[in-house]
């Protein structure tokens, strides 16, 4: 059982949860993730550690309320406990001085990007950040990312903040301006990572992506998270989560991510109905 020290909504449907987990706070390295089990019958949800405080023994998780499990977890309150947290899992990011690193965060993907960008800055890289979101309200960790970046850009789908367009438009501009880019680090929806990788491949810019495939155990035992990288099947949980974006088969990943869509929708619908029954006055969650 892990004590929830704090939980708050940092953007619509995006929650930040601080857990008391001293050992994980001490052992975690940038790029690694944990599996969170909210309740005894809950599923194992892979989440990246967005931040940590080893002195206080705390880890920060950021998650989007998409399905039943994440929505249910979002309803937890300070002082309650989540059933279990397992980790740290996956390989840590290889941190070194590349030169100029473009850090691209799409939506809630900024959460896993942040600790990596922070480390990349610490070792002396020039950090250019591009954050993308559907609209101005959906950015997270804006202040934190801005603070560590040498250059900072934003894009929105609806033009309510920054450039009206996609992160790839901003990246394209940098490339066309002839900027030297030594590494692109892109974390966000698979479709975003796909198009970033296609663009950088054209220009031969090394690109790292962090994949968010479906997982069960997260320890290499089941293979649910398998993905084709350069034609070879890899397990995201133990071989990743980071891979060379130019080699990832994103179309396969996108299909695999949708495997349980109908069942997820069904579970969510049932959950929302039950929630409405519990709160006949039409509580704030519905």
């Amino acid at each position: 059982m892990y004590l929830i020290k704090d939980i708050e909504e940092i953007a619509p449907k995006i929650k930040k949860m601080v857990l008391k987990a001293p050992l994980l706070a001490k052992k975690h390295r940038a790029g690694q993730f944990v599996m969170v089990i909210n309740t005894e019958k809950g599923e194992r949800i892979p989440l990246t550690i967005a931040d940590k405080n080893p002195e206080k023994g705390e880890i920060t998780l950021i998650f989007q309320e998409i399905g039943k499990s994440t929505m249910e977890m979002g309803l937890r309150t300070k002082g309650e406990h989540v059933y279990d947290v397992v980790g740290p899992l996956g390989k840590p990011t290889h941190i070194e001085k590349y030169g100029t690193v473009v850090c691209i965060g799409g939506g809630v993907g900024t959460a896993p990007l942040y600790p990596i960008a922070k480390k990349m800055k610490e070792v002396g890289n020039h950090i250019i950040t591009i954050l993308g979101a559907r609209n101005k309200d959906l950015f997270i960790l804006e202040k934190e990312m801005k603070a560590l970046s040498d250059e900072f850009y934003q894009t929105t789908d609806d033009g309510t903040k920054g450039r009206h367009g996609l992160v790839t438009d901003e990246l394209k501009r940098l490339i066309e301006e002839g900027r030297e880019i030594d590494l692109v680090l892109a974390i966000g929806p698979a479709i975003m990572m796909k198009f970033v990788s296609l663009l950088t491949k054209e220009h031969n810019i090394p690109t790292m992506v962090s994949l968010n495939s479906i997982m069960v155990d997260g320890t290499g035992m089941c293979g649910a998270c398998r993905v084709s990288v350069g034609g070879i099947t890899k397990f995201v949980c133990v071989d990743g989560p980071e891979f060379d974006g130019h080699k990832v088969n994103f179309d396969e990943l996108l299909k695999r991510q949708a495997m349980y869509k109908d069942m997820e929708e069904m579970a969510l619908k049932k959950f929302l109905e039950e929630l409405r029954e519990k709160e006949p006055c039409g509580g704030h969650h519905a």
Binding site: T39, K41, G42, E43, R44, K68, S69, V216, D217, M221, C222, G223, A224, R226, V227, S228, T233, E252, K255, R256, A258, M259, M263, M266, A267, K270, F271
Partner: peptide
């Protein structure tokens, strides 16, 4: 890697450990 292909480990873990046969009462 098509959808609908499982390792026995994944299939059995979903059902035995995660109680997927109780879905949606169990979340997996």
């Amino acid at each position: 890697n098509l959808n609908g292909v499982y390792s026995a480990n994944e299939f059995l873990t979903r059902v035995n450990l995660m109680k997927a046969y109780m879905f949606p009462e169990a979340d997996t």
